[in-house]
């Protein structure tokens, strides 16, 4: 059975699922992540599923469980990179993935975690946009 690697980057655990997972692999990932969160004390988990070509009810349930378990362990989970065709399917399947936060890509996922941790957007983002258009001023 293959195993999905969990990488630690700063305060974030990054998981990029690059294989067509067996159910057992998904369950293993769920366990690995819980242990890694406790071992590292990370407060954010990003799961990149841009390489997955389907999300069926099993994968959906695993993602939801990971998010719930992480929350109990004081870590926020963001699922990033779901493909359009993949995103249309769970809707029809009746899978709503409640409690899972999502972002378009890893960058936005990191931003989202930073935002929810500090309660504000990262400060440097503010300056870049400021000069671009005088009609739209960021609120202080």
């Amino acid at each position: 059975m293959e195993r999905v690697p969990v990488l630690k980057i700063g305060d974030i655990l990054l998981v990029s699922i690059q294989i067509d997972m067996e159910d057992q692999t998904a369950l293993q990932l769920q366990e690995d992540l819980a242990e890694k969160i406790v071992a590292t004390g990370c407060h954010g988990v990003i799961i990149d599923i841009s390489a997955l070509d389907i999300v069926d009810s099993f994968v959906g349930r695993t993602l939801a469980t990971i998010a719930a378990v992480s929350r109990v362990l004081d870590a926020e989970t963001v699922v990033v990179g779901m493909r359009p065709a993949v995103a249309i399917t769970p809707v029809e399947l009746g899978l709503s993935l409640p409690g899972i936060r999502t972002a378009l890509n890893v960058d936005l996922g990191i931003e989202m975690l930073a935002f929810s941790r500090d309660g504000a957007w990262a400060e440097d983002a503010e300056d870049d946009e400021n000069e671009a258009d005088p009609a739209a001023v960021p609120t202080p």
Binding site: D53, I54, D56, S57, F58, A85, I88, T89, L93
Partner: peptide
């Protein structure tokens, strides 16, 4: 189509399981 492929593969995954 890509969306239909995805739907069919997802259905197959559920039923095979």
């Amino acid at each position: 189509s890509l969306v239909d492929q995805t739907k069919l593969v997802t259905a197959a995954s559920e039923l095979a399981r």
